[in-house]
Write a protein that binds this DNA or RNA. Structure first.
Lengths: 228, 228, 228, 228
DNA sequence: GATGAATGAGTGTTCATTCAT
DNA sequence: TATGAATGAACACTCATTCAT
């Protein structure tokens, strides 16, 4: 009966099968949310997909909210990891930003869902979701903010509010991802990545570094347990 | 029974009271969506708020989808009008962009809903919503694209894909609006508007024009019929 | 959608079929409660018995609480009527008390449920049930209290707190009814009635009047609409 | 797995902790029933309160029915003890009746539940509950019946069916307790006790004995194991 | 144009109980 | 003795929609 709201339990106490069931639910939930949005997450369907009885889900999670929050937290954490990884790419500021942008693009497209923007669906849940977001927002933004701070300190970028700059960067990416997923459908990812990078570099006066394209870290599918 | 999908009917056939009822439904729907998101739009509540019986709503709309689509179309049209209005502000390119940004910010905040991003909630409706968006996307983007094209033609801005640039601009704004509405709550609108404008101008190499702040067109509440 | 909590609607507005359905639900509910107690009143079963769909019940009643309260109020009102009727029997004080006792015995046995005592089952409902009980308690007690006041004024009975005396009378009857219904099963009603009357008359020093047995008013089944 | 229905097991087989667990369950059950009525006794909550796992309860009791019946039997036994104790008060018949009435009042109020009347909630359980009641009814009634028989034999009371008389007495008390607990809330216990005693004495023509108020035996909380 | 009545399918959640360990 | 895991059946209630009037 581990839950997002109940973290004091040590994770090793659960039996092997117990953990497996719990993760089966989370995996099914993640998949359902990707396919049908938050509103599409019905406990009935979740039970069907996870291969468990409805009542069994309630053995592992307090309620639907708890499932949702667990998925949400796991996801935001995974995204933060991916971004941090990409930001750690060696190379020039431009190269590192390119890697970050590519990674974030990849994650968003891969999941058909934009975490930060998808919040709006979850009206009655907002209070608890805020807490999770506030707790992880820094992890999400910090690696990129660091790059910008470095660049500014090095005199390579003009001085700006780096937090706002990163938010602006995320916004641009969201916009293109949404467009690609919902409107156009064609894959102009490479082109869009290039455009976003260029806009961002120009906005901050960072010189483009076209000598070599940084190879973005390969993006593993979410909810794989091997990286945890 | 006029509906979005049923436009061949001539508009004069409805009685005075008929039109009034239809608009009462639309107004109630718009209000409900703002308050509770798309998922919060239940026919029961819609009936209660509009003062009509549930069955009566089905006289004016084919089904819930039809109500949703009607609201959606009306809204996107209103937003397009506001943007066009703001883009028509006389002044330098920078001033006009400032007006556009301010207007878009105002609309989004005013409604607690970001149209383009909110689409994701409406899985299953997407097909029909796409049609509406595709039909109106140009109206939304064109006025701002024009400004950029002018600026580029005048040698004031560097040459870029103007469509992508406008999408990037919208994305940045969405990002800040979301943050303000859901995470922070404090009103840093002025600061954020300034930041977005500055980022965008720098990204396009458009010289800032601080001689005078363009006064954005006053934003009327949506769903007022007087402007139609 | 008339409900206990929603009395301002004028009763004539409902259609004939609407009223019929509402009463079918109330009748089924009354029957179920008799058979299985308050806890046995499931909406599922209520739908089955009343021949309506579950959702239809919610068209006529706000929720289960509303059904329960409606039945409860109707019942307590009916009991009050029966008692008032019996108390109006012409004859000596002893005769009238005998009539009242017989009537109350009959009602309780007929229904397998003792209203005033059965309250205890309805823990979470108590607040609203209290309101109904307080509103009707006087109607229940007053007719019998009148008999006692008359008897006291006439010097026939010793002076006592008549309200407490009537409560004591009800308590004795409940005790015997419970015993008969749940423990013994045999019908000693006549004997028990006689015993209760005798105890009560002695307790108040009212001389027994054995000249003629008052014929108790015939007890019609509850929930018949002809008396409303 | 000792249970009410399974008495052939020799009591010494249980370990010390086993007995403790069993009684923890009974104590929690008793408390839950007091607070929420019979319907409020859920195995889940029972597990939580008793500090045991749900499955463990099934080691000590066959099923929920068994728990209920065990509590019920323990309670009725305790009540019988208290009454016998009070009836053994030395003094006149009136004094002993006063002691009995006070004791019974105290028990009922203390528990917010009237055993004999509360049965009605437990439809479907009735068959087994009857058995318990029949087995203990005599223990409950006999001490008071004895007082009356003494009084009649001594020519102090008029001759009546003493069993019915005691049932009538219990009924009066239940009525006042119910009223106090559910309707009025104020504590008129002393006044009500006096009234009941007076009614009963008059009903049986037992002379009141106001020389000294018998001090009722102090009422210990139920489910204490020290008195067993 | 308007509505009360009605409904099947679905919502999330709790129930008492079983079983392998 | 003890328990985590699991479950089918039930729970009260809401959904968007239809239809006769």
């Amino acid at each position: 009966m581990r839950s997002v709201l109940d973290r004091q339990l040590h994770p090793a106490e659960s039996t092997q099968t117990g953990i497996a069931s719990r993760q089966a639910v989370l995996a099914a939930a993640q998949q359902l949310i990707q396919e049908q949005g938050y509103a599409g997450l019905s406990m009935r369907e979740l039970a069907r997909r996870s291969g468990l009885a409805k009542a069994t889900i309630y053995h592992h999670f307090q309620d639907k909210r708890d499932v949702l929050l667990s998925v949400f937290e796991h996801d935001i954490r995974t995204v933060a990891e991916r971004i941090a990884e990409a930001a750690a790419t060696p190379g020039s500021h431009a190269q590192r930003l390119r890697a970050v942008i590519a990674a974030y693009f990849a994650i968003q497209v891969e999941r058909r869902m934009v975490i930060l923007n998808a919040i709006r669906e979850t009206v009655g849940l907002e209070d608890q979701i805020w807490a999770i977001i506030r707790a992880h927002r820094d992890d999400l933004l910090r690696p990129i903010m660091s790059i910008l701070q470095d660049a500014i300190a090095a005199g390579v970028a003009r001085p700006v509010n780096v937090e706002l700059a990163v938010m602006a960067l995320f916004g641009m990416i969201h916009s293109f991802v949404t467009h690609r997923l919902l409107i156009d459908g064609n894959d102009f990812t490479a082109e869009m990545e290039e455009f976003v990078l260029e806009m961002f570099l120009h906005a901050l006066h960072i010189p483009a570094d076209r000598s070599a394209h940084a190879t973005p870290a390969p993006v593993a599918p979410l909810h794989t347990t091997d990286t945890e």
